[in-house]
Design a protein around this nucleic acid. Structure first.
Lengths: 240, 240
DNA sequence: CGCAGATTTGACATTCTTCAAGCCCAGTGG
DNA sequence: CCACTGGGCTTGAAGAATGTCAAATCTGCG
């Protein structure tokens, strides 16, 4: 809808929000609880350590993966829910939100295919935020107790889990930087660039992509009001 | 210097910055690399899982702990440093800072006795921030590779490491909430309350304590300018 | 004592929010 | 088919919160 050539400038073309899904679920994935084999999963490189032997992969498969589908707007888990499992996004997208009594919510992250969800629950056995699907989505369910058991047997797995958690820590500290030091304009620009990078890693276009979240959700994530987000988008669009 | 009774209101008495250290190092701890035994460490409850057998504690001691002292203003590690170890603060205090080329730094946390440092490095083998001592301090050095080995042998240890990392994730998301949704006044109040809570856990006074960091560092942490921090302190003091 | 850095305070500028109005689009029902 | 409706989006004007700049203390340290 906008010129794809726009990615010569720092900020990618402003995407238009539509309801056309970025990742369509394959029909086989919509069934309620089919076992998906990690060994043949295209996302394996994203959510599992590389270099596992086939017997180790079999261990993974036997112990760990079931999938779950979540409809747009539904929650994968809520704050205070008992923590049992972590999740890997297979298809679709989510947001994680910390609700505050007075309605001042904070979106702490957007997750797309390959991202992990639920690591906040390890700390004290309860989740600390809500995870809400932005579109019809599917996740792999990874029971954390069993994952820990596996970690004791497979060293690369242990290290991978640690990396995932550390990556989350680093991601969040980057966000703190954004929230603490950047102007509204810089925040929106950074947000678009990060998103673009995320889609690129999945093989989608860098310069043109759909945003599944509303202006309000973006604002909530970036620490500003939806009107300000809108103004920044307009500004970038004017200035290309 | 201020009335300790002030802790009846929501916000503790505004502390005065001085150079009087909160935690004095015992003389024996200032030597360069003495081995401190985890088994007899008073901080053990904070940085290690409870319920380890004495043989497991011995394993810990033999493999892991050396200590290091850092002078005020010196760095424990810097961004881009090779990641080898994580650290547990034994005495003193630190800040972690993400430096940005244009001088817009972000303080991502303050760490006092019992807190962990360095978990951001697991992710890709390099640290992502600087850790700087706010006063003469001491840390336990915990080589991460050896810790992972130990994790495979001692299950509670594995779980504890996961909890530490998850705790850091939760801490950061709380900070994102603060940065994203709160007014300057609320941020400073929350900051003081959190700090008060941290000191309380160490057995120090809730209503009166010293802040080792400058107004600028606090501002950097809370996403505002030092003048604003100062104004809020003045305001709280006026209103008690 | 006197310097350098930290802090406080005031006046003014800027940025962002708030409030309000109108537009666009998809879904709905007559 | 088309008006209607609601949600999301855009835009303008005014106001509040915070940043910027500057000056005057305060404090610890040599």
């Amino acid at each position: 809808m906008y010129a794809p050539s726009a990615h010569e400038v720092d900020v990618p073309a402003v995407p238009v929000r539509t309801t056309c899904p970025v990742h369509l679920l394959a029909p086989t994935e919509t069934a309620k609880r089919p076992t998906v084999r990690c060994a043949s999963c295209t996302m394996r490189g994203v959510c599992m350590p590389s270099g596992l032997s086939s017997s180790e992969l079999a261990q993974l498969d036997s112990v760990i993966c079931t999938t779950r589908t979540i409809r747009r707007g539904d929650t994968l888990y809520r704050a205070d829910d008992d923590f049992q499992s972590i999740y890997a996004v297979r298809a679709g997208s989510f947001k994680t939100v910390i609700m505050h009594r007075d309605g001042h919510d904070q979106v702490t992250g957007f997750q797309i295919a390959g991202d992990a969800l639920g690591l906040d629950g390890v700390c004290n056995g309860r989740h600390h935020c809500d995870a809400i699907a932005l579109e019809d989505s599917a996740v792999c369910v990874i029971p954390f107790g069993q994952l820990e058991t596996l970690c004791r047997e497979i060293k690369p797995m242990l290290h991978h889990v640690h990396q995932m958690m550390s990556k989350e820590i680093v991601r969040e500290s980057g966000l703190m930087m954004l929230l603490g030091t950047m102007s509204a304009e810089q925040r929106v620009a950074t947000f678009l660039l990060n998103f673009s990078r995320g889609f690129k890693a999945l093989g989608y276009s860098v310069a043109e992509f759909y945003l599944r979240m509303t202006r309000e959700e973006i604002g909530c994530y970036l620490g500003m009001k939806l009107e300000t987000v809108s103004r920044m988008f307009s500004k970038f669009h004017r200035e290309n």
